[in-house]
Design a protein around this nucleic acid. Structure first.
Length: 634
RNA sequence: GCCUCCGUGGCUCAGUGGUAGAGCGCUACAUUGGUAAUGUAGAGGUCGCGAGUUCAACUCUCGCCGGAGGCUCCA
């Protein structure tokens, strides 16, 4: 057989030669690194004997496919280790994930201490250096017989089409499509990281499973690097920095309800001012609607039937009321407060609305997942033929605003009709197409999420990554033909009748001010750009006699400032200001007081002495006006 | 809500079946210091809440509340 290599070279091999032999024939060093081989684009393990002419590519841990194979094999090792320690456990599925792998087990309870034992057992298995062998079942029944004691595997086999295969390593056999590492000894570092509850097939009504997560590498150094990255990320945790910088707090008296401190509010207000500015420029107007509204509105809007589990209810004067989980129904009342003409459309009505949603206790997570938050909401009421342009307008604004904060890694998802929805299929198709076309027009790559839309319409979501690599939904654009109907919104067309329904576009760019600020804290690791920093400059005096002069200069600059009046040493005050991540530190002593010049320190530790006041002001104003990402005076 | 783990002064964390300690912070005094921690003294805790076991619980058990990492859900 003739084998073609990626560089175009060809070589003749005997029929039945394995990938591993071919790899060895090229270079010994390379063979050791190669994990698998693709033959005519099909992934195989190195141990598989090859037949016929083929073009081959060797995969290493650096390739996504190689990584997946490596971690999938590691998941088998994990399952084998668990079964050695807990023979009664029933393995279900164990895939590779973005970072590592997991395996789900039924019929077993695993404590934190067990994880250590499992890891030790896994290491023994790796040392045994098994070579996984493949077995093909002639029939479904044969496969079911093999896995008869595991109803989950039997269920999987039931649904399979084509050849059913299993892999065996030592005493452990698992149902698996493969391929696998040729030798398990290639796993040089193996760590069991955490456990979690999970459900069979991810449905809460199914059996509860125990999920065990792990990660592995072909080199111990890579594991060390991975752990270092995790530790660095932890230092950026917004909950930690939020406490250190005195931005916000949470209290037992209201789980999931953030309390904003003065500096946190300074930050939020700066962001809001910016938001209001760009929206005004783009023709938005702003409203404010009540937080509490009565039952009849929520019934008409569909929230009573489709969103009740997330809402807070109470009775006033014997009537049911709800705290708003969304701003739209209230906003619609403003639109309907008088008759509208087609000439007024599109109407873009913004609202920084405080919404409350009763989220499950287990999902709360700092500012990322709270029970009350401020949406930078807006509803665009437009004619059907204006929808496409309006979506493009929102997309432009979304990318402009994200860029202002230095976010270039934004993942976009398009979510379609969920099972629980209002409105006709026809409306949903129209709305989904409008979103899709806008994305394609702007050349934005997106992932499709079938059945993940809001109950009233499909949506585009924008996801931003936090320091731990988790992604969080921020902005959203939702096209809604349904609510205009259920809430009976009309406008007068050029035919002089009110028989026209506008289309409603719901959109938010930050999504939640709270979440967005949480992400910003981690994104900047607390070192905010000058325009955002709650305290932009901190004044430090050499001695108490310089305080009056410091106060005078501070007022003149027109920046958000603090003066350190503590009786600490200069060094201590500098240290504190650095730890508080204040972008500019101005030291005032005899020198400055006499010459009228400034001594300015930036967060990187560099100090500029003898700076002219006017020049300093000019540079700082420029940094603020341009919303510069870093604060340097050079 | 589910799984695993955690809950000691404002913060970070030691600690023991016989009712508690450190550093930072805070207060006072002394020091007025030139770019990452001046010194001395002092105040501050019913060891998350409730019940049980025990002669005795901060320590053991159970329940609740809150937190962490996941699952599911979501902005």
């Amino acid at each position: 057989m003739n084998i073609t290599f990626p560089d175009g070279s060809k070589k003749e091999f005997k029929e039945g030669t394995t990938g591993s032999d071919i790899a060895l024939s090229i270079s010994e060093g390379f063979a050791r690194k190669a994990l698998a081989i693709t033959v005519n684009g099909q992934l195989q393990d190195l141990a598989t004997p090859l037949t016929g002419d083929a073009s081959v590519v060797f995969l290493t841990f650096d390739d996504a496919q190689g990584k997946e194979l490596f971690w999938h094999s590691s998941a088998h090792v994990l399952a084998q280790a668990v079964l050695r320690l807990f023979p009664e456990a029933k393995p279900t599925i164990g895939p590779a994930i973005e970072q590592g792998f997991y395996y789900d087990f039924a019929n077993v309870k695993i404590s934190e201490e067990d994880l250590v034992k499992i890891e030790e057992e896994a290491k023994k298995i790796i040392e045994q250096d098994f070579r996984p062998t493949r077995k093909e079942f002639a029939t479904k029944d044969a496969a079911k017989k093999e896995f008869a004691t595991n109803k989950y595997k039997v269920e999987l086999i039931e649904e399979m089409e084509g050849g059913i295969t299993a892999y065996t390593q030592g005493e452990f056999t698992d149902l698996c499509r493969g391929p696998h590492l040729p030798r398990l000894g290639m796993i040089k570092a193996f760590k069991v990281t955490k456990t979690s509850g999970a459900y069979w097939r991810a449905h809460a009504e199914n059996d509860a499973l125990t999920r065990i997560y792990g990660i592995s590498f072909p080199d111990k150094k890579l594991l060390k690097e991975y752990l270092t990255v995790l530790e660095e990320a932890k230092k950026r945790d917004h909950r930690k920095i939020g406490k250190e910088l005195d931005l916000f707090s949470f209290h037992e008296e209201g789980a999931g309800f953030p309390f904003w401190h003065p500096k946190g509010m300074e930050l939020m207000n700066t962001i809001i001012d910016y938001w209001k500015g760009v929206h005004k420029r783009d023709g938005y107007v702003e409203i404010k609607t009540p937080i509490v509204l009565n039952r009849s509105l929520w019934e008409r809007s569909g929230h009573w039937d489709h969103y009740q589990k997330n809402m807070y209810f109470f009775k006033i004067d014997g009537g049911d009321h709800a705290v708003k989980p969304m701003n739209c129904p209230g906003g619609v009342l403003v639109f309907k407060s008088r008759k509208r003409s087609y000439k007024e459309l599109p109407m873009k009505i913004g609202e920084l609305g405080l919404v409350h949603r009763h989220e499950l206790a287990g999902v709360l997570h700092g500012l990322f997942r709270v029970r009350s938050f401020t949406q930078d909401d807006a509803h665009i009421y437009c004619l059907p033929e204006q929808v496409a342009d309006e979506i493009v307008g929102v997309l432009n604004l979304v990318y402009e605003i994200y860029a202002t904060f230095g976010f270039d890694n934004v993942a976009v998802e398009l979510s379609t009709m969920p099972d629980d929805h209002i409105g006709s299929e026809d409306m949903w198709t129209k709305a989904t197409n409008a979103l899709r076309e806008a994305l394609e027009k702007k050349n934005i790559a997106y992932q499709l999420n079938e059945g993940d839309g809001a109950f009233y319409g499909p949506k585009i979501d924008f996801h931003i990554r936090d320091s731990m690599g988790r992604t969080w939904q921020c902005g959203t654009i939702q096209v809604d033909f349904a609510m205009p109907e259920t809430l009976d919104i009309t406008y007068m067309g050029d035919d002089g009748t009110y028989d026209h329904r506008p289309v409603m576009i719901h959109r938010a760019i930050f999504g939640s001010l709270e979440r967005f600020i949480g992400i910003l804290i981690e994104h900047y690791a607390g070192k905010f750009p000058l325009w955002l920093a709650p305290v932009q400059v901190k004044f430090i005096t050499v001695a108490d006699r310089h305080l009056d002069y410091a106060r005078k200069v501070a007022k003149e600059l027109g920046l958000r400032y603090e003066i350190d009046e503590n009786a600490d040493t200069l060094n201590k005050k500098v240290r504190n200001a650095q730890l508080e991540q204040v972008p500019l530190i101005i030291t005032i002593g005899d020198q400055e007081q006499e010459t009228g010049k400034l001594s300015v320190r930036t967060l990187d530790g560099s100090v500029t002495q003898g700076m002219d006041l006017a020049e300093f002001k000019e540079r700082v104003q420029k940094l603020i006006a341009t919303k510069a990402q870093t604060t340097t005076l050079e």
